[in-house]
Amino acid sequence: MKNFLGIFTLTALLLGFQLNSYAAEKVEYLKTDWSFKGLFGKFDRAALQRGYQVYTEVCSSCHSMKYLSYRNLAEKGGPEFSEAQAKAIAASFEVKDGPNADGDMFTRPGKLSDKFVMPYENVKAAQAANGGAYPPDMSVLVKARGGGVDYIYSLLQGYEDPPAGVKLDEGVYYNKYMYGNKIKMSNQLSDGLVEYGDGTNATVEQMSKDVTTFLMWAAEPHLESRHRMGFKAIVYLIILTILVYFSMKRIWSRIETKV
């Protein structure tokens, strides 16, 4: 048993190293304390609400979030706006609907069941408006980047003047965390850009953290229930394993062989 566990752990560690190297690029990202990490990680409700504000006021003019609906804003485990607030948010957007009985498309105020309104009609329109670059959809952005939340958080604060010798084309910016260091999105955040309703000081760092938290929730809306269920499942399994272990010992005690 000990021998088995020893070899198993060793192999698992080796595999772990392998996976680690597989995760590729070793860039030192900026670190911050994410409330949603760890066994009991939960979202910071206020940060999610502030993050949503940053998204709507800054990001959403170029970036879509096509998998989210306004109803999600009021759901458990998310920003948890009240239903009235979520309804008001939805109603503040004009949604294209139709065709109506006359066969015409029309616009109406958004409802909870509507998906987030897209900033552009289609990918081509988005590219045309952004110098040929497509601002990626943000619904699963955090999961679609190797460094995850740390990468997004760092990228938002990673704009600098290019080092001597680096030539940038028109509409290309230097970011020390971007893959290849060249990014077509200009620096979007500056201190005091948004005015937080809860009085939090809107520094670049604060806004980066809030909006990244919001993006994490957007990509993993069930993260909180996953963590809760995971803890229960693992505790249950451990207790059951211990019980089965003693049953096994009892049964095998009938013969001389050890288990």
Partner: peptide
């Protein structure tokens, strides 16, 4: 084995 499995799935 399931404990290891669950750790991956949930965390």
């Amino acid at each position: 084995f399931m404990i290891v499995f669950a750790f991956f799935v949930f965390y």
